[in-house]
Design a protein around this nucleic acid. Sequence first.
DNA 1: CGAATGACAATCT
DNA 2: TAGATTGCCATTC
Length: 98
Amino acid sequence: MAKSNFRFQVYQLVEKIPKGQVWTYGQIARRLGKPRAAQAVGNALHENQSLKIPCHRVVNQKGFLATNFGQGGWQEQAKRLKAEGVKFISKKKVVLLY
DNA sequence: CGAATGACAATCT
DNA sequence: TAGATTGCCATTC
């Protein structure tokens, strides 16, 4: 497929997310040099959903899980995050370490 | 090639 | 402070 460089960058970054750590789209976008590309980052994961990357460790700025997460929905994502040792403030809200 | 969509974020009221 | 609106970026139709 296309494998645009931008998407590749997103995957590389998401793969580097340490276990038990949750990143936000804004942080990733900012790291890629596009502070406003948060949606593009989320889009890259949604369009690909490679299952090879810990996309479940990526949440929005509010700390809430993705609204339309694949593979079973946010509950599946939350389940994986809990298995990683991530702390949850709510059923669908994780602890963001600023 | 142009327009529309989307797992977001920031700003304004 | 909370809610609503606009803007941004890349991918897809």
